[in-house]
């Protein structure tokens, strides 16, 4: 296989340099690290890490076509971030003391009250402008009596308008409230890094292949649904189809012919090229499989 073009100048990552310095925060959910903060998601994407969205999309939650936060990283993506020292684990501080809690509670109630007042004003303005629009459009030839009439109505509205509590728009936050980035977190995290099973040789092979392909500018996602380790995209998966199915194998490992045939056949059926990827001393060796279809 040809060496893929090196160095990606994907336009979206023009600002990449500015994001590399940004440390993303991972939070553990059931011992799986997830990314929650919008800015963190953007940051890792600009580093060419795609991950997988797990949550329901706020706009239209009841569908599986497009999902929303949180973002789950592949183990290789996690490790790459940790190798670059650009990720930190965030801990949920559950041990809020009474005073802090009371303070938070007061703050929350105060915010709710303020929100209600502001929304009340907004709703009233909304109603007024709607009324104004209705009046002016129905009476194009405006005369004095009409404006008086309008003025009167607006006053009545002013006096009688009530904004029901149930109409108050509230936010169901995605990210934990009051979570402010701080440098202590980062230090804390190096010790308790979630990616533990590094002793697994299989993982090591995968990681080497991952870093190599990533350094050549490819985007990678998990390839389980196509029977491989990774799906390899020439550009951002939003705009491009995967070209390769990467299967990671240690160099010295022998392979069953049937397995090779199966994966090659599958690859040709989905119009992708199967890559056997084996890290060696001089970088990763790639072998592409093609179903020749020769009779």
């Amino acid at each position: 296989m040809d060496g893929p073009s090196s160095g990606d100048k994907t336009p979206a990552c023009d600002k990449e340099n500015s994001f590399v310095s940004h440390v993303v925060g991972l939070s553990l959910c059931d011992s799986t690290p997830l990314l929650w903060r919008f800015q963190d998601l953007k940051t890792v994407r600009c580093q060419g890490l795609v991950g997988a969205l797990l949550g329901s999309l706020p706009r239209t939650p009841r569908q599986n076509g497009r999902l929303g936060r949180p973002l789950l990283l592949m183990p290789e993506e996690e490790r790459m971030l940790s190798d670059r020292h650009s990720a930190a684990a965030l801990c949920a501080n559950d041990q809020d003391e009474g005073v802090v809690l009371r303070h938070q509670l007061e703050q929350y109630e105060e915010e709710q009250r303020r929100s209600y007042e502001e929304q009340n004003v907004l709703a009233l303005e909304d109603r007024k402008s709607a009324m104004l629009r209705a009046m002016t459009s129905s009476h194009t030839g405006s005369d004095a009596g009409n404006t008086d009439n309008l003025q009167g109505r607006l006053e009545i509205l002013d006096q009688n308008f009530t904004f029901p509590q149930s109409a108050l728009a509230v936010q169901l936050s995605t990210v934990r409230a009051g979570l402010i980035y701080c440098h202590e977190d980062r230090a804390f995290l190096q010790a308790d890094w979630p990616m533990r099973a590094q002793d697994n040789p299989c993982r090591e092979v995968r990681y080497q292949v991952f870093t190599d392909l990533r350094s050549r500018g490819f985007y990678l996602t998990s390839g389980g649904k196509f029977g491989g380790d990774f799906l390899v995209y020439p550009g951002d998966p939003l705009r491009f189809h995967a070209h390769f199915i990467a299967v990671c194998l240690p160099l010295e490992e022998s392979v069953y012919l049937l397995e090779v045939l199966a994966v090659a056949r599958l690859g040709s059926n989905v119009k992708k090229t199967v890559l056997l990827c084996s890290p060696g001393l001089n970088g990763v060796q790639y072998t592409s499989l093609q179903w020749s279809g020769m009779v």
Partner: peptide, 28 residues
């Protein structure tokens, strides 16, 4: 052309991802 399309897709993507859930209190 491709660059623009990608940017548009990404913008749409991020606006979807960044959107917060907002509901009327009465519906919750």
């Amino acid at each position: 052309e491709q660059r623009q399309r990608l940017e548009q897709s990404l913008n749409e993507h991020w606006s979807l991802i960044s959107e917060e859930r907002v509901e009327r209190l009465g519906n919750l």
